[in-house]
Amino acid sequence: MKSQMTLMNAMNVDLRNMMENSNMKIENKTDIKLKEVREDIEEKSKHSLDKIREVQNTLTKTSSDLQSAKSGINNRLNNAESRLSSVSSKLTSLEREQESQEDNFDGQISRLSNRISKEEARKVAFSAKLETKRSHYGKCEKIIFDEVVYSHGGGYSSSTGIFTAPKSGTYLFTFNVQGGYNNTAHVGLIVRGSWTTAAIVQGGPKRTGGNAGIAYLSSGDKVWIQTYNQQKYYIWPGRTTFNGILID
């Protein structure tokens, strides 16, 4: 009986030792496995942290690039706004200058139009020529230039050959006479009944002579062309003319 107890105790001790050894082995394996898992987790964590840092660095660089791009865009926008403001200011200045020039042009055109109207209202001019052929003219006889080539402002009468000044002012008159055959054609410019200038042609039907005169006329004064004081004068039409114009 006593030996059995001793044996059982011994067996219990062996069993306890075996269990302890088994537990130690299990603990050792568990520790090894946990270590491996922990190392794997640490490795993956380190790798993840590296990825996170890489992403953070990329985001930081991207943010910096975006800030730089934003700054550049803002600078360009500011420059564009400045140029637009300068262009707008120049356009406003040009518009004002154009308006001023247009006003000035309108004023000049208006003044010029008024001046032209006044000049047109004051303008007096005529041109007439001898169309009817006669055998001869007597002494101190008016020559009637019966074809009016041009007339502005009135004054000349093709039925009497007399110019009557419609306005007071300084007039310029020109006259030309063509001689007939081999005789003399001698005519003069008569202003207010007084002989002023003369023209004479001698020696052939195709010869002409002329003259001009300037006189101040009051409104209503009369001017004409007449022959000199001999008995007969032979004057041909065509190139025998009488002209006048108000010059001042």
Rank of each mutant, 00 (worst) to 15 (best):
D103E: 13
N57R: 14
R38L: 13
V55W: 09
I200G: 00
G209K: 08
A185V: 00
N211D: 10
K133T: 08
T227N: 05
K167A: 09
K222Q: 15
S110G: 05
E42F: 07
M11L: 15
L217R: 00
A198T: 09
S117K: 15
M8S: 13
R207K: 12
K123Q: 08
M11E: 12
T208E: 06
T240H: 01
V223I: 08
Q101H: 09
S194F: 08
L130E: 02
E131L: 07
N12I: 15
T184A: 05
G161Y: 04
Q226G: 11
G154Q: 07
D65H: 11
R83C: 04
F173Q: 02
V177N: 01
T160P: 01
V37C: 04
N74I: 06
I245W: 04
S135K: 09
E120I: 03
G161M: 03
H152I: 10
I144A: 04
L59M: 15
K118S: 11
K25F: 06
A199T: 02
T240V: 00
S48L: 14
R53Q: 13
A199E: 05
T164K: 09
K46M: 08
Y234A: 02
E42N: 14
W236S: 13
H136E: 13
K70D: 12
N57Q: 10
N57H: 09
I235K: 06
K51L: 14
K232Q: 15
S100V: 00
L112V: 11
G153H: 01
L130S: 00
Q56G: 07
T58W: 12
A212Q: 12
A215Y: 06
Q202R: 14
W224C: 04
L217P: 02
K61E: 15
S82L: 07
K118F: 02
R38M: 13
R111M: 12
R122L: 12
G169C: 03
A212D: 06
S48N: 08
Y228L: 06
S64K: 13
D50N: 13
V55T: 12
S151W: 02
G244D: 07
E36W: 02
H136Y: 15
T208Y: 05
A121E: 13
T6C: 04
N243E: 08
L49N: 12
R192P: 00
T62D: 10
F126I: 05
T92H: 10
S113W: 00
N9R: 14
F145E: 00
T241N: 08
N74L: 10
H186E: 00
T132H: 01
S127W: 00
Q98L: 14
Y234I: 02
G188R: 09
V223R: 01
S85G: 05
N79G: 05
E42Y: 10
D31F: 08
D40C: 07
N183W: 08
